[in-house]
Design a protein around this nucleic acid. Structure first.
Length: 279
DNA sequence: ATGCGAAACTAGTTTACGTCA
DNA sequence: ATTGACGTAAACTAGTTTCGC
């Protein structure tokens, strides 16, 4: 499978040109340098549940975020087995990061029995830990090894935990951005459908007008047809008939001055050509 | 230029845990 | 009080890319 560069992903495909369109959702700046926090769904990214359980556990005297290893141990771990996915380093073949983490845990005087019991024990992060991680993520959504170590030390977590948190956080960010982009495209599609419907109707009206004898008699075959670049109506040159009337009649044929395009609320364009007729 | 290994990454999955009906 | 469904977050696996040697 081909990997896609971060910059090439939908994350940066925020359709920013919608930003001036009032009816469109505001694309969120989630570039790698400054991911927006405000855009997250309050429920989905709420840490309330975490806080609740954390508080409960605290009351129960359960420290779910027991410092799993000393800083030195963490640094040892980081130096030796920093990447969970670089699991192919050992001669004896793959070794899961869990096993590696267990090694660390085992150094922390956890019996084998206890270790087996707590295998893949997931520990919710505390409110403070989550907040700090979020703040750090806002500044940069990736961490270099030094930052990772420092953050892990600050939070009392294993570097691996920090690493995983950032991985999952990036995934959530991307998922959210994809949802936003999807919504924008959906609206765009809806606008196009509406516009298509309107144009079809307009074509029908024009055909009806063309077939009506009165209109047909007035029609002198135009040598050239000029189209207003904004409203894309055809302006008939002034030969024979009063130009202003001609435009008015066109306007009558198009009672609704709807702008064209799926993103309808674009800045108005001066109808210079048609202004000439009005003079 | 090419191959290799390590590190770092993403996508997708699994699992533990909290919430709620 | 219990339970099962469900959602979410932490942790995992597999595969890809990048980079230095």
């Amino acid at each position: 499978m081909m990997m896609v560069e971060k910059e090439d992903l939908g994350l940066s495909l925020s359709l920013n040109f919608f930003q001036n369109t009032p009816n469109q959702p505001q694309p969120l700046n989630l570039t790698s340098s400054s991911p927006s926090q405000s855009y997250f769904h309050p429920k989905k990214f709420s840490i309330q549940e975490t806080i609740t359980s954390q508080d409960r556990n605290s009351k129960l005297g359960i420290d779910v975020n027991r410092l799993p290893c000393t800083v030195v141990e963490c640094e040892e771990e980081e130096a030796g087995v920093s990447s969970p996915n670089s699991t192919v380093s050992s001669v004896s073949g793959k070794r899961s990061s869990r096993e590696l983490d267990n090694d660390v845990d085992n150094r922390g005087n956890i019996s084998d029995e206890e270790d087996a019991e707590t295998a893949r024990k997931k520990l919710r992060l505390s409110k403070d830990q989550s907040l700090i991680l979020e703040e750090t993520f806002k500044e940069h959504n990736t961490l270099n090894p030094k930052q990772k170590l420092a953050l892990a030390k600050q939070l009392g977590l294993r570097p691996r935990q920090v690493e995983v948190w950032f991985q999952n956080r990036r995934a959530r960010t991307k998922l959210k951005q994809t949802e936003v982009d999807c919504e924008v495209l959906k609206r765009c599609c809806e606008n196009l459908t509406d516009e298509n419907r309107r144009l079809q109707k307009e074509v029908q009206e024009l055909r009806a007008l063309k077939l009506s004898p009165q209109f047909y008699m007035q029609m002198t075959p135009p040598t050239t047809l000029t189209m207003c670049p904004s409203c894309e109506r055809v302006a008939v040159p002034s030969s024979g008939v009063d130009a202003s009337n001609r435009h008015i009649s066109m306007a009558q044929a198009h009672p609704r001055a709807l702008p064209i395009g799926p993103w309808a609320s674009v800045a108005p364009i001066t109808h210079r050509m048609f202004d000439v007729f009005r003079q």
